[in-house]
């Protein structure tokens, strides 16, 4: 028997992609309606919007959804770029997943600042 082929780390990104996809299917449309159509009609002040995040539960929800949306988008972006042969694979992975990683870190940082900063 030949040895089984080497595993890839693709499952990590695929599960993040799947989780983000599930959340966006559940909440994406609602978010688009609220933030894209309802709110612009009577935009709340920054303070009012930020105040929502002072609630720890809202903070947790934002912490789960925003990064997972990033990872969902990153996987789609990566696969599209890969199929377009836009460049060497590691570079494409770095660009797509890197963007999601930065987005995730920034989200965590901002939410922590809002929760505990003031």
């Amino acid at each position: 028997m030949t040895r089984p082929p080497k595993r890839t780390i693709a499952p990590i990104f695929w599960l993040l992609f799947g989780a983000g996809g599930m959340l966006s299917a559940l909440f994406g449309t609602g978010l688009v309606i609220v933030t894209g159509f309802l709110l612009p009609a009577s935009p709340p002040s920054y303070q009012a919007a930020a105040a929502i995040l002072h609630n720890p539960l809202a903070g947790l929800v934002a912490l789960a959804t925003i990064p997972l949306f990033f990872w969902h988008g990153a996987e789609r972006l990566f696969l599209t770029l890969k199929d377009m042969r836009a460049g060497p694979r590691p570079l494409l992975a770095l660009i797509s997943y890197g963007a999601a990683a930065v987005g995730t870190l920034v989200t965590i940082l901002l939410i922590f600042l809002m929760e505990f900063g003031s």
Binding site: P4, P5, K6, R7, T8, W14, D83
Partner: peptide
Amino acid sequence: LDLIHGEDGVWSCT
């Protein structure tokens, strides 16, 4: 399953 965990296994599919 051990045969398909790799890059040329199930993970080539998009």
